[in-house]
Simulated assay, not measured.
Amino acid sequence: MVSKKVTIKNPTGLHLRPAGILCNEAIKYQSKVTFGYCGGTANAKSVLSVLGACIKCGDEIELICEGIDEQEALDGLTGAIDDGLGE
């Protein structure tokens, strides 16, 4: 298992479009991909789970990847978030 804390930079947080981009990135990997936030844990491969987390700009989440390609998944997701998830 690997994990890393990242801050969401999107001005409107993880609304539908960036949540979809995050999920599409997570689905590329075989590893289980979740993130912890103030209030719980969300499945990064589920748009509804990501939206339900209500992550806003400036919120910090902890990406958690567990599986065969966990480091690759963590690097890919961190890069996507750092790049603004399409915004």
Rank of each mutant, 00 (worst) to 15 (best):
Leu74His: 09
Leu74Phe: 14
Gly39Cys: 06
Lys56Glu: 10
Glu60Phe: 00
Tyr37Ser: 08
Gly40Asp: 00
Ile81Asp: 01
Ile64Arg: 12
Glu60Val: 00
Thr34Met: 09
Gln71Phe: 13
Cys57Met: 12
Gly52Leu: 02
Leu48Met: 14
Thr41His: 02
Glu25His: 04
Cys57Gly: 09
Gly67Thr: 03
Glu60Asn: 02
Gly40Cys: 00
Ile21Asp: 09
Gly20Pro: 05
Gly67Met: 05
Thr41Arg: 07
Tyr29Met: 02
Cys65His: 10
Gly36Gln: 14
Ile68Thr: 15
Ser49Tyr: 12
Ile81Gln: 01
Gly20Thr: 04
Gly52Pro: 06
Thr34Ala: 09
Asp82Ala: 15
Asp75Ile: 00
Gly58Gln: 04
Gly20Asn: 15
Cys57Ile: 01
Cys38Thr: 12
Ala44Pro: 11
Glu66Pro: 07
Ile81Arg: 04
Lys28Gln: 14
Phe35Asn: 10
Gly40Tyr: 01
Tyr37Lys: 10
Gly36Ala: 12
Gly39Phe: 08
Lys56Arg: 12
Val33Gln: 10
Ala80Lys: 15
Asp75Trp: 02
Ile68Gln: 15
Glu72Ala: 14
Glu62Gly: 07
Gly58Cys: 05
Gly36Val: 09
Ser46Cys: 05
Thr78Gly: 04
Cys38Trp: 10
Leu22Gly: 06
Leu48Glu: 01
Tyr37Gly: 08
Glu66Ile: 09
Leu48Ser: 03
Phe35Gln: 11
Ser46Tyr: 01
Gly67Lys: 11
Asn24Ile: 07
Val47Ala: 04
Ser46Phe: 00
Ala19Gly: 08
Gly52Ser: 06
Cys38Lys: 13
Cys54Gln: 07
Thr34His: 11
Leu51Cys: 07
Thr34Arg: 10
Gly39His: 07
Gly39Pro: 11
Cys38Ala: 13
Val47Met: 05
Ile21Asn: 09
Tyr37Trp: 09
Ile64His: 10
Asp69Cys: 13
Asn43Arg: 07
Gln30Tyr: 11
Ile64Gln: 10
Ala19Asn: 03
Asn43His: 11
Ala42Cys: 09
Glu66Asn: 15
Cys23Pro: 04
Ile21Gly: 13
Glu72Phe: 12
Tyr29Leu: 03
Gly40Ser: 03
Tyr29Arg: 05
Gly20Cys: 04
Asp82Ile: 14
Asp69Ser: 13
Val33Leu: 10
Asn24Val: 06
